[in-house]
Design a protein around this nucleic acid. Sequence first.
DNA 1: CTGTTAGCGCTTTCAG
DNA 2: CTGAAAGCGCTAACAG
Lengths: 334, 334
Amino acid sequence: MAKITINDVAQLVGVSTATISNYLNGNFSKMSEKTRIRITEIIKNTNYQPSNVAHQLATNEARTIGVSVVDITNPFTSTVLSGIYEACGQAGYSVIFTNASNNDAVELDNINKLRQQDTAGLIINPINPESPIYKVLSNENVVLLDRQAKETRIDTIVTDNFSSVKSFIQDMKKNGYDELYFVSWPIQKISTRLLRYNGFNSAMHYTDDHHLLIVNESSSSALKEELYTIMQNRKTKRIGFFSMNAKVLIQLLTILQQMDYNYPEDFGVGTYEDLEWMQIFRPGISCISQNSKKLGELAVKTLLDKLQQQRNNSPVPKARIIEVPTSFIKRASY
Amino acid sequence: MAKITINDVAQLVGVSTATISNYLNGNFSKMSEKTRIRITEIIKNTNYQPSNVAHQLATNEARTIGVSVVDITNPFTSTVLSGIYEACGQAGYSVIFTNASNNDAVELDNINKLRQQDTAGLIINPINPESPIYKVLSNENVVLLDRQAKETRIDTIVTDNFSSVKSFIQDMKKNGYDELYFVSWPIQKISTRLLRYNGFNSAMHYTDDHHLLIVNESSSSALKEELYTIMQNRKTKRIGFFSMNAKVLIQLLTILQQMDYNYPEDFGVGTYEDLEWMQIFRPGISCISQNSKKLGELAVKTLLDKLQQQRNNSPVPKARIIEVPTSFIKRASY
DNA sequence: CTGTTAGCGCTTTCAG
DNA sequence: CTGAAAGCGCTAACAG
């Protein structure tokens, strides 16, 4: 059962391949109703599936977009991906997917492979947008997501990291906390972490890093000691913590639990990111909720718009940052 | 800046395209060292990227595999996907990704698109493997994942749903529970749910459905009433619950919390699926942990092996079920 | 060691 | 309304 081609169909119908091609592309005006019906019939009988590659080679029009993510295992990422997929599907594009697993070398490799794949464009959730590779990528056919570079060379979709954290922290402060700490994985100049931290500092008017607590993803022992000291010396002061994301929150709470401290009595707590389980904690965890799916959709829209503009020979506008708002979910954790 | 092709490179180097092609395919023995070096140089200077489509059209060898998942938003799914991606990458395949969002029509559409995409094969995490589409898919180039059909027409990778739940429940029972309940979304003949439920019944020797509690993903009100009755009438009996997955567990605990019941005092609880937050609950939640990443990797391996066998003209063996073991994580929730 | 040439499956003028 | 034929970028004999 060799694969059936446009040639076979043409032969069976008794017309030329050109006519079949026209049929496939919906140019029905270019054939009699009779042959149209006949073609429909044959195609159904033979279960003919036009070859995408051949079509693409002939037209030079890629209908697929390439995606690279930092880590598919992160709930944030998978929601983004659902948005990307949905938006692409609606526009008739398919997506080829790539996962960096938080490893720069893998990411570089992925991006290079993607560039060879004859895609219409790329959506990249970068590990570090300052990496050299991002200097060579063109704003014509790529958009970045979540993490932004110092200088905006390529359109980037982000959340309002700074302002959302700032107002969240202001609310915590208003609730009577004397001292607040920002708990985070190493900042490493990663824009999301830095901006959230800046928002925190801006709300607290802190000017040094005495209220920054760093955890490593792999080990929480250093944090443990710091927390011990803080809790021991707090006296009558009311202490609160804001964690940079859900995983950090888990690390934070694990330690505090081990030391037998409970919120909101012994400390207050809030976090960036909103996951389902946060609502069944007792009490529920207050948090900042991002519309991750929207991020993905917007990335697709931005990319497709650019491509369309180029088709119209419009010049590519300057790269810009597109901010998606978050929402504030107040529960009883502080 | 028109795209540069193999022809351009050949001209610049002053050889024929055949030689360039040989170079690209690593057949260095077929050219002098001199021209080899010269080609390397030109390719670097021109930044020439061979076209994948053209290559594929010429060789008729797809280097991409298509994936369809029930719901990318599910942590189980994203971990599976990470395994799939990694295994594909190692084998030099890229993956084109598709998300059904739990919608049969979307899934059907996705699968059909995938079949037109000139992929080497398909890995499908089916919504319902009894759907007609799975009768037309061929075991030659597809493998199913997680949910299995009544009759195994296509290789399927699954976890040991029945036995893992059975021994988990036996352990709960041994801990002195008088009555255990299986909490689940509507079974709907979905194999994973059914098998887990069967494992439960097998351990408890229950022969009717009096210990099956159904929740809907969207509404927990019916469950609420049932739980109320059960807890009210339990008297001195020790009651326990086993939930079919993490989301059901959240629904279950939410209700029980609202009624002011705590585990393990008022009831015991365990669940299928292992997520990070389960360990910082107080007390931690005992659970069955699946190696989702492994599932993905195995799906790829199974698929690629089949394809290889066909290349060697071996007949495709009969479809089979491949079971991946789970592990039992004991904490203090019962 | 290197070049010629005929495809791969589809699109797209250009004639008729 | 329909067909012939060139071409998309690459591969794979086959010659030389």
